[in-house]
Design a binder for these strands. Structure first.
Length: 221
DNA sequence: GGATCGATCGGCT
DNA sequence: GCCGATCGATCCG
């Protein structure tokens, strides 16, 4: 028996990408796979906003891969990178404007044993902390591209869970875009829950670095 | 703990 | 051809 099946509505996603990225923190990502529920609380996200954003895949305009980003909000954008990794995004904003939120980290909830089996490790802190780790843990691949996350019949969806107050959200530059020109490389469009232990090593490192340099900042705007 | 590097292949120039 | 919205192994200190 399922405790709940209340996917966030399309209106949640059809807003400013940064707002969606912040408000997804504390929400629960659910995955129905092989008859089992796998889930976790979203603790880290990044916003990729339009063709102007030179870190966004849509920077090159509409292509076969990025077409989904130009479509309606609330759909999944799952892509393959580095020859081996899958990344899960939720499409945002109005139809015709290409933007998405990358889900970068989860605090594991249901289905821990299945996740451990899929990841080949035991440590719960390494199961879903990182965009490629969480897709491996939840078995999300190319087949899951273009799913309607707002449809109760989809096997991936997101539910409201606990609201993370603005004061507990940290914003930093996005990860893995060091060759992207400014201002995009440094704009603080990565968000995570301050102090949450379910973060990857690179996250903690980044927090330490940014804290000592004073670059870390509270989410604003 | 931190830096570096190889793996591996689809998408785009 | 080139280069990733990454991860994990390995080396160094």
């Amino acid at each position: 028996m399922r405790s709940s099946l209340n996917p966030l509505p399309r209106s949640f996603f059809a807003r400013s990408t940064c707002t969606v990225a912040r408000e997804l923190l504390g929400c629960r990502l659910l995955r129905l796979f092989d008859g089992e529920r796998l889930s976790g609380t979203i603790v880290e996200t990044e916003a990729y906003v339009g063709e102007e954003d030179l870190a966004c895949h849509a920077r090159a305009g509409r292509t076969a891969r990025t077409a989904i980003m130009y479509g309606a909000a609330g759909f999944s954008y799952v892509y393959f990178t580095y020859g081996m990794h899958w990344m899960l995004n939720a499409i945002t904003e109005d139809e015709g404007f290409p933007a998405a939120v990358l889900i970068r980290g989860l605090e594991p909830g249901e289905g821990l044993e299945e996740m451990r089996k899929r990841r080949g490790i035991q440590d719960s802190h390494l199961l879903c902390s990182g965009p490629a780790r969480l897709t491996q843990a939840l078995n999300i691949q190319g087949e899951e591209n273009g799913l309607d996350l707002c449809n109760k019949g989809s096997n991936i969806w997101i539910e409201a869970c606990r609201k993370v107050p603005r004061s507990r959200i940290v914003a930093t530059p996005r990860i893995g875009i060091s060759s992207t020109p400014e201002p995009w490389r440094s704009i603080p469009w990565r968000y995570f829950v301050d102090g949450n232990p379910f973060v990857s090593r690179s996250l903690r490192d980044s927090l330490k670095r940014t804290t000592s340099s004073g670059a870390k900042q509270r989410a604003s705007g």
